[in-house]
Amino acid sequence: MLRRLLSSAVSIFLLVTLVFFMAHLTPGGPAFSILGQKATPESVAALNARLGLGAPLLKQYGIWWWHLLHGQLGYSYLLNRPVGALLWDYEVNTLVFYAIAICLSTMLAVLLGAAQGVWHGRWPAGVIGVFQLVFYATPPFFTAAILVLCFAVGLHWLPASGIGNPRLAHPGIGTFAAHLVLPVITVMLLTVPMLSRYFGEAVHEELGKDYVRTAQAKGVGFAGILFRHVMRNALRPLVTMLGLSFPYIFTGGVIVESVFNYPGLGWLLWRSALGRDYPVLIAIVLLIGLLTVLGNLLADLVNGWLDPRGQYE
């Protein structure tokens, strides 16, 4: 366990260093990003001196860590706010969106995967297989466009973008939920094919193992075997997969948030890239990397809880 934590810490250290070098690649250096188009050679030099940017690289690296540890992430000149506070607002929207999308995706993936594993080689598994193949190859922006075309523009059932009616000060939970339906479905159609296929194969594999035969011999019913033993064992690789697929889910998230104008981190990343708002870009890249490392760690911890054997290794 201590080893695992230590390894995550090393990853985080390397990640912060990598992003430091990425920040140095931004054109004109950080001073240009802060001053924007009003930058003159004199003002750049003055700001560099004030921020310590004229210092040797190693010292700047130290300052970078110092600022990070104090939560100073710079200033967004596009949205005119400190990056830290800005990220927090968007982060909340993203967390709500992802929590709902990942919960529903996992449930649907477990359901489909279990069906596929149990009916392996028969037509229901084949139908699920075709669904997986088709939606695995469908890019999320196409799925989103078709959904908007059908359910927002054609049928007027659901709103096409945003998170609430801008004319209302407090849109209320119902409006918010209605705005979430299409984005959540898009993410589900992106993640469920991969996750359910993985889970289906695990269920099929577990069903062929000796303990299943033992349980059958002992007189346990099929439902008992499936829910008490097989699903629980097949869930472990799924949890690992979920932890590992965080970057993949976030990739979909960036696209989905931009299509639906959902003000989350992915949307902010996109707008900052188009507006060349480097302090915000750097902060988001760093945050996503950290979340991925933590996601993997969390997956390992949950697995340790699902299967106590690992703890004694």
């Binding site: 970057p247 993949y248 960036v254 991925t292």
Partner: peptide
């Protein structure tokens, strides 16, 4: 570490 950053995010950057 490189794999911890989603490739689309790095590409956008």
């Amino acid at each position: 570490v490189v794999l911890a950053l989603p490739s689309l995010v790095v590409l956008i950057f």
